[in-house]
Amino acid sequence: MSGSFEIEIEALERSPDRPERYCEAFVTLFPVSGASVSTVGQLLGSETLAASDALSARIDELQFDLGEGPCWDAVRSARPVLAPALHVSGPKKWPAFTQSAVQDGIGSVFAFPLIVGPLRFGAVDMYSAAPVRLSSTQTRQAGAMADVISRHVLRRALSAIGEDPDEGISAFSRRLIHQATGVVLASIDISAEDARLVIQGHAFAAGKPMMTVAQDILDGRLRFVRDGDRIEVAE
């Protein structure tokens, strides 16, 4: 079992530009009926990027329309949201969503947030018709897979809007961006690659050039801080 997790996550890492493959790994590894990947919230808008079946897509749509559901909570809390027995835990948290979902024959729902540093922008949703539980190992594995997808999704979204960080930036500005990348990676303990994505994503969210955000970081006007396992922006 652990062998196949390694294979699946590696395949995911190699498929940044094939969103249609994002869900496969979840359906293969876990006892679920379907999975979907969607962006949620202000940063990238709410949209389903991939769904393994029609019901998965419907679960996303329900949550977007109702403005409630596990994927919203996952994005807000930056943590996995597990509802192995939806009819028990759901009515209180998401009354409208639970009613529709249970009617559609859904027993369990699991949502894993898409996060890079302080940026929270989507979720992987899984459902099962029959109520099932995810073991703690499976929960950890799903989280790791969602992390891989997070980077793919953010990178693709940023390149789709033509935010090529190296275009039209002088060599001197690039230097500042590299320095700011160092500050960010040290302050929240992430990889250099992620730190750069965080700067780029933050620039996009704030509607500012990357260079300005880099300067703000170097001057201490913009800071990223770690709060437990979450990362927050301090301005």
């Binding site: 230097r175 590299h178 320095q179 160092g182 500050v183 960010v184 990676l185 170097l218």
Partner: peptide, 19 residues
């Protein structure tokens, strides 16, 4: 050179000094 710039940022943060 890129990595050196990044390292300057790291140390500037951890030691609280200028770049």
């Amino acid at each position: 050179r890129i990595v050196i710039e990044q390292a300057k940022g790291v140390v500037s943060h951890t030691r609280g000094v200028s770049i």
